[in-house]
Amino acid sequence: MNDLAELKNFVVAHARSQALRPDHYDPLLARIRNDEDGTAGSWVREWSDEAARLADQGKPLEAGAHYNMARFPFVDGPARQRALDRCIAAFDSWRTSFPAVERLDVELPGGRVRCWTAGLDPAAPRPLLVMTGGIVSIKEQWAPVLPQLAELGFAGVVTEMPGVGENSMVYGPDSSRMLSAVLDAVGNRADTARCYALALSFSGHLALRCALEDDRIKGVVSAGAPLHHFFTDSDWQRRVPRVTTDTLAHITRTGPDTVYGLIRDWALSGKELAALRIPVAHVTSLRDEIIPPGDARLLRERVRGVRLLTHDDVHGSPSHFAQTRLWTLLSVLRMRGGHADQRAALNREFARLRYRPEGAREAHAKGIHAAAGT
């Protein structure tokens, strides 16, 4: 059973990333009284009931977003497993309107990596954009962007970290090789020699480590990524929210009392970060409760030419989501080159958003995302 206050706190960034507004999710959160396995008033039950209502209204994408919140942060019993299954089914229903979005399974010795893809074409392979979330976000949370990627000149793959969602692998010291395996799997249908990673939170760490070994990755854009101190600073680790520690223990198949000892050697060193020869862009939250400030300093000091966006916000910068989404997309386009007109338009919108009050940002977000092709 999870800490209910933490669930309500940390789910906000994920709710906003799926276009759920506070006036919608605040009353729903207020109805939640416990985190028992699907009982009345429980986390899973309230989110799932709202998801079912939306599904009955013929809104599969919105229903899937609510089932995603129901299984948050990870599957720990039958109720969350049903929510995950229904989330995937809802996304599968939605994608029937977008035949270009296809499933891809990558079978590896350690398990199966499941992905959603679009724009894979052996006759005209496009540069590849790989998107991954962190330890609590599944691929269905990000996959709705796939139908728009062709307009930006990309083929796309959205997948999950080991142990998250349908990824049956165990999160371990060599997990970055999973990304290389995904590139291998689509190498005859995408220009994987020009691959860019939009890798959020913990998957940013995987992508940077992979880039040190796989020169097909030509740029990494991330937000709230652990780099070094998160893995090594035991004083900081004692302050990390329980939901993060429990999730790490779940995907590494260890326990909350032993997980930090396990991951200590996974830290990227300053020397490794300085060895990166690709463009890197990163969004940092100044009041991040999960990632220590030393990691952002290390990135700034050791990675040459890094581009940074900083928000005075908590992990995931939920109050700046529209701005972050624009900036990360712009960063990918800068790395890729070309599309000058779209980049100029997005730059103008980013400048407007940067100085808007948050309420105005949210009201304007739908139009912004359409302009961005997201």
Rank of each mutant, 00 (worst) to 15 (best):
N2R: 15
L4I: 12
E6H: 13
L7T: 07
N9I: 08
V11M: 15
V11C: 10
V12T: 14
S17W: 11
A19C: 01
L20W: 15
D26W: 03
L28I: 13
L29P: 11
L29G: 13
L29E: 09
I32D: 13
E36K: 15
T39V: 14
T39H: 10
W43T: 09
R45G: 02
R45A: 15
S48Y: 10
S48P: 09
S48G: 14
D49Q: 14
D49V: 09
G58R: 09
G58Y: 05
G58N: 06
E62H: 00
H66Q: 09
N68Q: 14
A70E: 05
R71F: 14
P73F: 13
A79D: 00
A83Q: 09
L84D: 02
V106T: 06
V106H: 01
G119A: 01
P122I: 04
P125F: 01
G133H: 05
V136P: 02
V136N: 07
S137M: 13
K139W: 07
Q141P: 01
P144I: 10
Q148R: 08
A150C: 05
E151M: 04
L152Q: 08
A155M: 04
G156K: 10
V157S: 00
V157P: 02
T159P: 09
G165W: 02
P173L: 00
S175V: 07
S175C: 02
R177H: 06
S180R: 13
L183A: 06
N188F: 11
N188I: 12
T192P: 04
A193T: 00
C195N: 08
C195W: 02
Y196C: 03
L198D: 02
S201L: 05
S201A: 04
F202H: 07
F202M: 13
A207D: 06
R216G: 00
V221D: 00
V221M: 05
Q237E: 02
R238T: 03
T247K: 11
T247L: 07
Y260Q: 02
L262M: 08
I263N: 08
R264V: 04
W266D: 08
A267V: 02
E272L: 03
A274N: 04
L276R: 03
A281P: 01
V283D: 04
L286I: 06
E289C: 01
P292M: 14
R297P: 02
R307V: 09
R307C: 14
R307T: 15
L308E: 07
V314T: 13
G316T: 04
F321W: 14
F321H: 05
T328G: 10
V332H: 00
D341W: 10
Q342H: 10
L346N: 06
R352G: 04
R354K: 12
Y355L: 06
E358T: 15
A360M: 10
A360Q: 05
R361G: 02
R361K: 10
E362W: 12
E362S: 01
G367K: 01
A370V: 14
G373S: 06
